[in-house]
Design a protein around this nucleic acid. Sequence first.
DNA 1: GAGGAAGCCATTTTT
DNA 2: TGGCTTCCTC
Length: 817
Amino acid sequence: MYDFPRESTRITDKLNPQQKEAVTYGDGPLLIFAGAGSGKTRVITNRIAWLVSRGVHPAEILAITFTNKAANEMKDRLETLLGMVAQRMWVGTFHSMLLRILRRHAEELGFTPNFTILDTDDQQTLLKQLMKSLRIDEKALSVREAQSFISRHKNQLHWPEDIPSGNWSKYLYYNELIELYRAYLRALKEQNSMDFDDILLYSVRLFDDFPEVLDIYRKRFRHLLVDEYQDTNHAQYRVIQQLSGFHKNLTVVGDDDQSIYSFRGANHENILNFEQDFPNCHIIKLEQNYRSTGTILEAANAVIANNQARKEKELWTANVKGEPIQFYRANDQYDEARWVAKEIKRLSTRRENPIAPQEIGIMYRVNALSRNIESALREEGIPYHIYGGVGFYERKEIRDILAYLRLLISEEDRLAFQRVVNTPRRGIGDVTIDRVMDHATAEGKSPLDIAGRASQYPDLAYAASRLQAFAHLIRDMRESMQKDAKSFPEFLRYVAEESGLIPFWETELAKGSLEAESRLQNLEELRSDALEFEARQEEDMRLLTELAERFGDDGMNRVLFEDRHGEVAEGLTLTALTGAFLENTSLYTSADEEEMGGAVSLLTVHSAKGLEFDAAFVVGMEEGIFPGFRSHNSKSEMEEERRLAYVAITRARKHLYLSSARARLLYGRSSYNPVSQFLAEIPGDYIEELGGSRFGDGEYLKEEAGYPGTSFVEKRQWDNPTSSVGQAGTGLSGAIAAKENPFAKKHRPNINKNTMKTKRNLQELAIGTKVRHKRFGEGVLLKIEKLSHDAILSIDFSGKIKHMTAGMAKLDIVDKE
DNA sequence: GAGGAAGCCATTTTT
DNA sequence: TGGCTTCCTC
């Protein structure tokens, strides 16, 4: 067994010299190169704690992470280190932090503070509509293409008028695209919405155009810390520059070798240019790896050394050399999948040091590769969990009800109106909806306003009564929300009932629809999310009040109070809760998914970043897949693939398994792909080959190297890696897989790590059970109200009765003895 | 507006 | 291959 160091409560205790230097560095720009497994998170959190111990007020700290999950983990650690004052820091993603600021200054930008956030689907719907009205043929220019054009330019901070000309050759429809972009921005503003990219775009504009606003924040945040700096895009870079411009205390942490999101606009030049961008900066390299065996680490080093565009560094470890890496050259994808499943079975059931399923990860370059693995795992009876895929909040019924909420919060939200006006069906057809929208545009009114006065419009006569009924419905709901007499989950239930969504699915259920059953369950689950959300908000509010009382007025408390709940200083009204809930759901992504206990993880290499496994499998290590065939054209793309390989390899703590298949059926075609060139880059001492050579079956000739390491004799294969050869049988369909797999994906926001523990013990819970809560101490269970997947617990903490969801609450069962 | 046939398209996706 | 959208028919 290796000595994997444990958390220390003292701030600089047990840190290596570089870590210590990073934690205790004083003022000024600081760049920390943090290699894989080098204790990065610990360094950031301890640095924050150190700053606080040196007299920096917690409210003067802004820490930016890339996922909500990472932010929550950081907050938890900070709370352990610092106690409740940690509550007063701004820790979050770019989007969540900037959203707070944007809501407060929405008017400066021509929005109102209740603006809504559009997700990718909404964006596409809107673009589609605009393309239609601009008469842009979707066959000539796909919505996807248009969307990525706009997104790319927003990330570059290009407004339509800034877009440099000269890209004519690249886009056939250059003028149309710019016109579309302009129309899109206008449409968003008209309906008081922003998309994800807008959050950054408008923040930069706010700070540029209103220096007095920028001044508030850049003076306030004495220290700014940014994680995963290698994956920032240009807009994020600008925001960092703006916010750190006054105190110049900027700490960025990252690893250029792990930059894998350039397709999303991330620019790893940001980290490479940091020294020029922020003069007088100090650089620290964390090169000791605490995660992997020597073998795994050396292999990773050897692979990444083939990249040219990188900062020179060499990770080392004091860990044992460990087992050799296993490479399996399978005959086809079934063979490969079976090998993976058998090996997992062996690892998890062996007598000595068995590896728990949750400590095993299977990674692949493309999601499509998961299917064969899934069926092999099922055959072996190995529980698994697939990350990514259709998220909870992307499900139709959930989006429907959220769209109702959006409409309640912001009447201007046209997309929400269009989504729900005839959902469930109430006899309002597409033609009618179009007419309503046209009137709304012409008069500058909300579609809801038009609907409410439908009888005044001759062309709406046919559906007038139904439109007006809908407008009434929404008005009633809004009144109910403003009356503030319901709890948040009650209100959700009410909206789901009154809108007709629940009745609709219940009718379907009565007809025997299986689909309806899961839809209803999901709606129910949303309600239990809502309950937990409300409880958490109340808890936050209570904590802040307590903080204010305890610390008195140190000039920060009022600010803090407003920070946490925006303009909600009047308290947690139903309206405020609804707005906050919407925001939470729109910023929630699959990356925030909590790890699943007791199950093997299946995930793309991208989503594995930041995770680690005792045993890691990387399947589909083939030319054309990993590296992907699209990356053959450019060196920079090939280098990104190599970084991806580096990320994959460095996920492994003790065991690393790589595999490729001679023949692979993918997308309905069979192909014979050569072994990934990255395998040839791993020195022979570290690897053990099974079923064939990692140089392939003779298809390589070293001398002809066109790419670092290897090249191909069979040029044809290279050019066309998916040349059709034959057909084979098929695996189980995804739909069936999802149904049958008891561990199938289930999204829940912000689940605490103790969740599984409490959930598992749900059966053990009975009235009278003694439980312990992190904050409230010991309590006695008074009541259990069962939900579909969860239960609401009423607990008596020495007189104070609290209600919490079993799946969420940080509860331990106190032994009855 | 339901249902079925036909056509399309398929890296990666931190918000 | 298969999952999704779109288009057509009744």
